[in-house]
Design a protein around this nucleic acid. Structure first.
Length: 659
DNA sequence: TTCGGTAGCGCG
DNA sequence: AAAGCGCGCTACCGAA
């Protein structure tokens, strides 16, 4: 028997002012599986609706019926149920309509969503803030049920989320949606991908999110304190330098206030004031208000304001002109910017010291804001991010709440990941998986041979970029031409995806602080492309097929799609390579995890950063586990007419997360 | 006061 | 076409 399940939750932190509220401005506890409480567990078995308030009753029902459960975005429900003591086993979880929705070809069109969200806006207007209808996306039940089932859109009262009637509706619609979307995906030929990969992947993610990663809170706080102090020093230094500039800026603000005050006063005296004898008193009032406003003006620049930084940069003689693409017309337009590119340009081309100062400040400021995020995210000594498997078009994972896929290398020290007395932490990444996947897909003979012979891709690329280096044996490039190799490394992957000379120049400036004339960049890009004719040709052919309506699937059965609002040339091939690489790594972690489970070894992957996986291994078995994980990551058969492309991994066993 | 868009930045 | 792609988060800022 299949049954759909949906739970309603609210803040479960008794000392929180939002306690018991499902959707309040007080807190976000209702959506954290460790901080929420369950108000309703609703179940629809196709015939009848049941409701439980206690997980024990739900477990009892599950034991009796042996139901196979479907849900919508059920990972959250699963974690919450488990955290409240439910014995719900992953085996009992049969499907998820959100994952099905990601697989069906006929997705909700943009126009439909637009209409939905306009209606939403209308209904939201009279509602109190923070208690409004949430935005409808292509994968929310609120939009999927009306679209695929033809039922009326249903607008829950957002202030009382625990209304049993709404829960019943959610359960029923999930149940019907499941039947409908299974049929649709079977027609589309995507059901197999959903069943064999997405559902098991989702279950693995649920286990990892549930466990979370252990944090050394003491270290985290001390790093935050230290970074904050350093930031303050850098900030003071900058404010000390820009004093003149600030006073000029402040004068313009004062002038603005005065002229604004004057014009409002005049208008008032002319049009509103009937009793002219009161004009003196009015003037006095305006004068006082003006003085007060002037007193409240800032006493120093806000360095987080790009508008104000722009003034500083102009004062410091830094060129702020940048050229960007207009989103609508796709034309190049002149703009002003204060970003890293502008600052590095000033630092490298004109040796501007102020630019260096600001770069240092910005870097520290980012560290502080990241550390703050992590401090706020710790619950019970751990951070539990959410890993979304349908959040990206490419099929990569995305991480949120907080995003643990963009943690600066220098900030990874407090991430113990798991109890160091019991576990070793294994950080393993797949070496150069994207060019390897490219070699496999394109079956380019040179690239296949390159990897088969265990050679280095960046050395190879250096030969493609710089004709004059071809007299040097490839294996000697790294030590005899390190600078050229770094240049090649900067562009050897992205140029295949579409990077041109101008972007290449920018990347060289940002990453290597190299100042290369554009003509030289053009030559390098051209030279590289000429050397990669096989790969570029395959890419072109893929794009032509896609334009002709061919459905492109990767070896997992994943449908490869270009971005709607961008050119196929820029996104299709990248999507194929990036996504497939990520699926290979993720699936390898599932295979290894299953191996460990079968052997009774308590090893688990806890974090995925695209081509990097962070595991915890029981100390007694870590060497064995390491070998098995490496094997699972490298055992894919990437067959080409020129032989199989080998894979390679680089792993590090330690007591915390390694860079 | 809130909302939505933008700028900027981190990771792969 | 001077065409890298893929994400999430914070602060700012103008409009409502």
């Amino acid at each position: 028997m299949i049954a759909s399940v949906d739970i309603e939750t609210s803040c479960g932190v008794t000392e929180c002012p939002g306690f018991g509220l499902s959707n309040s401005s007080k807190c976000e506890h209702a959506v954290h599986f460790k901080q929420n409480k369950i108000d309703i567990i609703g179940v629809w078995d196709g015939q009848a609706y049941f409701q439980f308030n206690e997980v024990q009753a739900f477990d009892q029902w599950l034991d009796n019926t042996k139901a196979r459960i479907v849900g919508h975005g059920f990972k959250f429900d699963y974690k919450t149920l488990k955290a409240k003591g439910s014995r719900l086993h992953p085996r009992a979880v049969f499907g998820d309509t959100q994952l099905l929705g990601a697989c069906v070809h006929n997705k909700i069109p943009a126009g439909y969503l637009k209409a939905y969200n306009e209606k939403r806006k209308e209904l939201n207007a009279p509602l109190p803030p923070k208690q409004r209808h949430r935005v409808g996306t292509p994968l929310t039940l609120k939009t999927m049920a009306p679209f695929y089932l033809g039922v009326e859109p249903f607008w829950e009262n957002p202030t009382s989320h625990d209304d049993p009637n709404y829960n019943r509706k959610d359960c029923e619609y999930t149940y019907r949606l499941h039947e409908k979307l299974v049929a649709l995906t079977e027609q589309d030929g995507t059901y197999k991908f959903y069943k064999d990969y997405l559902v098991p992947w989702q279950k693995l993610l649920a286990e990892a999110e549930y466990e979370g990663v252990l944090i050394d809170e003491k270290m985290l706080h001390s790093m935050y304190g230290e970074a904050t102090r350093e930031l303050r020093t850098l900030e003071e230094e900058i404010h000390g330098v820009v004093g003149d500039c600030f006073r000029a800026y402040r004068n313009t603000l004062v002038d603005d206030l005065r002229s604004d005050s004057n014009s409002r006063l005049e208008r008032y005296l002319e049009t509103r004031l009937k009793d002219k004898s009161k004009s003196k008193a009015v003037k006095k009032r305006y004068k006082e208000a003006l003085t007060k406003a002037e007193k409240e003006l800032p006493t120093q620049f806000n360095l987080a304001s790009s508008q104000q930084v722009l003034r500083i940069l102009e004062w410091a003689g830094i060129d702020t002109a940048v050229e960007k693409r207009d989103k609508e017309t796709n034309n190049w337009i002149e703009k002003e910017g204060t970003d890293k590119y502008v600052l590095k340009r000033a630092k490298v081309y004109t040796k501007n010291e102020f630019a260096s100062k600001l770069l240092k400040y910005r870097e520290k400021e980012t560290e502080v804001s990241y550390l703050k995020q992590y401090i706020n995210a710790v619950v019970g000594g751990r951070i539990h991010c959410t890993l979304s498997i349908v959040g990206t078009r490419t099929g990569r994972l995305s991480s949120s709440g907080p995003n643990l896929q963009n943690v600066k290398g220098s900030l990874r020290l407090p991430f113990l990941i798991a109890d160091p007395t019991l576990y070793d932490i294994y950080t393993v990444d797949s070496s150069q998986i994207e060019p390897r996947v490219i070699a496999y897909l394109t079956a380019d003979q040179e690239m296949v041979e390159l990897f088969r012979q265990g050679r280095d891709y960046h050395n190879y690329a250096t030969h493609k970029f710089f004709e004059e280096t071809r007299v040097i044996p490839e294996q000697d490039i790294k030590k005899s031409e390190p600078s050229l190799r770094r240049t090649a490394k900067t562009g050897d992957l992205s140029i295949i995806y579409g990077t041109g000379a101008y972007t290449f120049q920018t990347m060289l400036l940002l990453r290597e602080e190299m100042a290369i004339p554009i003509e030289r960049c053009k030559e390098m890009v051209q030279s590289f492309r000429d050397g990669m004719k096989g790969v570029i040709g395959w890419k072109q052919n893929l794009e032509n097929q896609y334009k002709g309506g061919t459905r492109i699937h990767d070896r997992f059965g994943f449908l490869v799609q270009a971005r709607d609002d961008a050119s196929i040339h820029m996104t299709l091939f990248n999507t194929f390579v990036q996504g497939m690489a990520s699926r290979m790594i993720f699936h390898a972690s599932l295979m290894a995890f299953r191996d460990f489970c079968a052997m009774g070894i308590d090893a688990k992957p806890l974090l995925w950063v695209h081509d990097e996986v962070v595991w915890r291994f029981p100390k007694a078995h870590s060497e064995f586990c390491r070998k098995l994980v490496d094997k699972r990551m490298t055992c894919y058969k990437l067959e080409t007419p020129h032989g199989n492309v080998p894979l390679d991994v680089e792993g590090n066993l330690a007591s915390c997360w390694q860079k």
